[in-house]
Simulated scan of single mutants.
Amino acid sequence: MPNNPSYIGHRERIREKFASAGLDSFLDHETLELLLTYAVPRKDTKPIAWALLKKFGSLAAVLDADPDQLSQVNGVGPATAQFLKLIRAVFKKYSLSEVKERITIRTPQQVLEYCNASLAGKQEECLEIIYLSVRNTVMGTEVIASGLIDRVAVSPRKIVECALAAKAPAIILVHNHPSGDASPSQEDIELTRDVVRAAELFGISVHDHIIIGKGSHYSLKANGKI
């Protein structure tokens, strides 16, 4: 009888390690190896994991990458690329559900985890609205604009119209800076102030505008910009 390929034993060991201890002791490459065992049949996933990390730099960057970028790595086919994107999408939905289950949202920190899950790592700038009830519970979210890396073209009127359509008495604005620097531009500040003024006419409160960078964030409310 021929011996089983060595990777079969490695798959079993890494799954057993996760079953007994979770991911806390896993390094990035081990986490990727484990994920890939569920998407890549009959192959050693270790070299694929290392190749992904070499190309993208980190586990987070791998999960943020587009499927066509992932598919450029040897051993990563379309199905595997979609699987990795699914992991990222599931994390986003989980983070949103965690936010929705909170009784109230009173500080930017309470929504930051969702904001990072939703927008961190995106390669184009996006503007998202978090709709809040009168008790500051999350009613829903909506990405209302996306564009080139250096700007998002959206009007205060559109933002207010979206809030009215959602029947939301309060909102939080969130957008990302793909450059990595979370500091607001003058355009960001002026847009936010225009939205605040326009929303007030309809009894809608703008609780904050949070900008997501790479490993950082900026709250216009906390920094006295609105």
Rank of each mutant, 00 (worst) to 15 (best):
A222T: 11
L173F: 01
H207K: 13
C162W: 07
I204Q: 00
Q110T: 03
P184M: 02
D68I: 12
I130T: 07
G147Y: 09
L59Q: 06
L53P: 07
I159N: 02
T31C: 15
L34G: 04
N176P: 05
A61R: 15
S118R: 12
I159T: 04
S118F: 04
T137S: 14
A21D: 10
D44S: 10
D44R: 09
L112W: 00
I103L: 14
R106K: 08
V154Y: 04
L201P: 05
A60H: 14
P5L: 08
G9Q: 06
H29C: 03
A49E: 04
G213C: 04
M1W: 09
Q109Y: 10
H10W: 00
S133M: 09
L32Y: 00
L220I: 00
V138R: 01
I204S: 05
L86I: 00
P67W: 09
R135Y: 10
Q110R: 10
R197H: 11
K55L: 05
I149Q: 11
A61Q: 11
S219G: 02
H10V: 12
K100P: 05
F91M: 11
P47G: 04
H207E: 14
G203K: 06
Y38Q: 13
A222G: 15
V206I: 08
L119E: 01
I87Y: 13
R157A: 11
L148N: 14
D150L: 08
N74R: 12
A166K: 14
V73P: 05
V62P: 06
N116W: 15
I129R: 04
A117G: 08
E190Q: 15
S58W: 04
F91I: 12
P67I: 04
S205D: 15
K122Q: 11
E187P: 04
G213I: 02
Q110K: 09
V99C: 07
G75Q: 12
T80E: 00
I144G: 01
I204Y: 02
L63M: 03
D194S: 13
T45S: 10
Y131E: 01
L112C: 02
Q69V: 06
Y7N: 07
T137V: 01
I226C: 00
L96G: 01
H175D: 05
D181K: 02
G22F: 04
F56H: 11
S71F: 10
E101S: 13
M139T: 05
F18N: 07
L164H: 02
A153R: 10
K100T: 07
V138C: 09
I204T: 04
Q82G: 14
W50I: 09
V76S: 02
N3G: 09
K221C: 05
C115K: 01
K122C: 08
K100M: 11
H217V: 07
V174Y: 04
Y131S: 06
S179H: 07
G147R: 12
L173T: 03
A81I: 03
L34S: 02
D44F: 12
L220A: 01
A163G: 13
L32R: 02
N223H: 09
A21P: 07
S20V: 06
S97H: 15
S97D: 14
P2C: 14
V111D: 00
L220P: 02
K167S: 15
H29R: 15
Q72K: 10
L86V: 15
I144W: 05
L119W: 04
K43Y: 10
I171R: 00
